[in-house]
Every structure is written in C-alpha cells, then in structure tokens.
Computed example of a mutant assay.
Amino acid sequence: MRTSRSQPPRIDAGLFFLRLTGCLLLLYVHGLPKVFHFSEELTRIEDPFGLGPYMSLLPAIFAEVVCPVFILAGVFARLACLPIIGVLLVAMLVVHPGWSLAEGQFGWLLLIIFTTLAITGPGRWRLGSARHNEVRYGAS
C-alpha cells in the first residue's frame, strides 16, 4: 500500500546509485590514499588555517573515509554529508580558489552529489529500513 510519504522505487534506486557511486569515488580517489599513504600525505597536504598538517589531514580522512561508510549504509547519511561538504568547500574555495571550472570539476561534482544527498536523505534502500518501516506501518 502506497502512502503519501512513499515514493516510486526508481527514486530509491537513484538515491542508492548516487550514494554508491559518490562514496566509492570519494573513497577511492581521495580517502583511501590518505589512509594508506598517511606519512606521505602529511608532507603534501595544504594547511589553509595554519593548524599544522596533522590537524588538516585528520578532518579530511574523517570526511573522506568515515563519512562515506555511513552514507553507503544509509545510516546518519544527511549528517555524514556535512563534513564532506565542508571539506569540499574548503578545498574549492580556500585551497584552490584559482582553479578554473574545468580544473575543479571533480570537486564540484562531488559537492553536487553530497549536497543532493544532504537535501534528499538516503532513500529507503539502507540498513535498518525494513525494520523502520515495520515499526512505522505496524507490519509484523
């Protein structure tokens, strides 16, 4: 039975695809290299606020490794998008303000993906959603 709050399955499929592809791209291109090459990254990371490389790298790792795992699972997805959005905005507006749109297109596309997910939420295809729907609609 469809309620006024339900949406077509293709919307949930689209949100899942957006979560999956956005998170895997962020993890593969940015997050995991920072973890696997931590010492090397400490020598290369920009320090836009003068906090030191360690205090610049840790928030980036949190946003690019921990948060995507939550988003992939659909758990606290909207909240987990916020650190990613913050790191991307710092990268695009503070660290690389002179980049052309072509040079920064990957960052801007990631920003679009995670801002969209922050607005929409993860959809129904997420961990714990079946149990949540049982409680909400009284199914047994």
Rank of each mutant, 00 (worst) to 15 (best):
H30Q: 06
S39Q: 12
R124E: 12
F114T: 01
A80S: 15
M1Q: 09
G107I: 00
T120P: 00
Y137E: 12
L72N: 04
P68C: 03
L27T: 01
N133E: 14
S129I: 00
V29M: 08
L82A: 14
C23S: 15
L111I: 04
T3K: 10
N133I: 10
L24A: 09
N133W: 12
V94S: 05
M92I: 13
I112E: 01
G31E: 05
R126N: 08
L111R: 07
E41N: 11
R78L: 04
S140I: 11
S129V: 01
A139E: 14
E134G: 00
W99T: 04
P68Y: 03
F114P: 06
G74H: 11
H96D: 05
V90T: 14
G86E: 05
L25D: 01
L89M: 14
F17H: 00
T3Y: 11
V29G: 00
R136M: 11
V75P: 04
I112V: 15
E46Y: 12
I11E: 13
Y28M: 06
V66I: 15
A77Q: 12
E134T: 05
L110T: 06
I113L: 03
V65L: 09
I119H: 00
G22A: 13
A91I: 13
F36E: 10
V95W: 01
L24H: 04
P122A: 11
L24D: 03
L15I: 08
F76T: 03
F36S: 07
G104V: 02
L24G: 03
P48A: 13
G74K: 11
M92S: 10
A139H: 15
R10G: 00
L57W: 01
T21F: 06
L18G: 06
L82F: 14
L82R: 09
R131S: 10
E46L: 11
P8N: 10
L111G: 11
R124M: 08
P48T: 05
V69A: 10
P122D: 12
D12S: 14
F106M: 12
F76P: 01
L93N: 09
E103V: 01
V95M: 14
A60H: 02
G31M: 04
S129K: 07
G50L: 09
G128N: 07
L32R: 01
T120R: 13
I71H: 02
V94D: 10
L42D: 07
F16G: 00
R5C: 12
R5F: 14
L27C: 02
P8R: 09
I61V: 15
T115P: 04
H37P: 01
L117N: 02
E46A: 15
R19L: 01
G128A: 08
A118K: 12
W125Q: 07
E40N: 15
P59D: 03
G74N: 11
R126L: 05
H96Y: 12
D47F: 03
G107A: 12
V135W: 06
R131L: 10
C81K: 08
R5A: 15
G22L: 03
P48C: 12
W125G: 02
H132Y: 11
V35T: 09
P97W: 05
W108Y: 14
G22K: 02
I113Q: 10
I61S: 04
R136N: 00
C67S: 14
E40V: 06
P83F: 02
E134I: 04
C67K: 09
G86W: 13
H37W: 02
P59M: 07
